[in-house]
Every structure is written in C-alpha cells, then in structure tokens.
C-alpha cells in the first residue's frame, strides 16, 4: 500500500509540473493554454487509472504464476 501512495504522489507531482509547464508555455495564448491544461489533466487521469489499477491487480493476487512446461 505504501508503494501505491508513493506512486500516486509521483503521478500528482508530474501532473502539477506538466500543468505548470503548459501554462507557462502558452501564457500568451489563453485558448491554447486552456486546451493544454485540459489535455494534461485528462492524460494524467487516464494514465493514473491505468497504472493504479494494474498495481492494485497485483497487490493481492488471487492466482500465482505457474511454471510453463
């Protein structure tokens, strides 16, 4: 569970940094700034869901890997 928390914090941190970067890059263009911010948030959400579900799936696995013969 600790790793899940650390991972979430890393994801949140990366999101904040990207959000900030995008906002700075498009500081003179409000329309594209808003679009960029939306993209960063959406991408972060999608990728976080995928990573977190994959992590959770392996956290308390119901089956074990079986040696293939």
């Amino acid at each position: 569970m600790g790793a899940l928390l650390i991972g979430s914090i890393i994801f949140a941190g990366l999101t904040v940094v990207s959000y900030f970067l995008i906002s700075v890059i498009f500081r003179n263009d409000k329309d594209n700034q808003a679009l960029g911010q939306l993209c960063v948030l959406m991408a972060a959400a999608c990728m976080y869901i995928m990573w977190a579900t994959c992590f959770l799936h392996q956290l308390h696995p119901i089956i074990r890997p079986e040696k293939s013969v």
Binding site: A3, C54, Q58, L59, P61, I63, P65, S68
Partner: peptide, 26 residues
C-alpha cells in the same frame, strides 16, 4: 505456501507473468 510478494512490481505487469502458464487468466 506460495505467498505473493509484499511489494508488487512498481510499473505495469511483473515480467514473470508473460512466461507463465496462466498468464492469460491474469
């Protein structure tokens, strides 16, 4: 007892699954 690891693989699926017999199930 075949207990699972306390700390799972941090990013994505553990590489062990790919070669295992029951990978599809997982």
């Amino acid at each position: 007892e075949v207990l699972p690891p306390l700390h799972p693989y941090p990013l994505g699926f553990d590489p062990v699954w790919k070669g295992s017999q029951n990978s599809l199930l997982f």
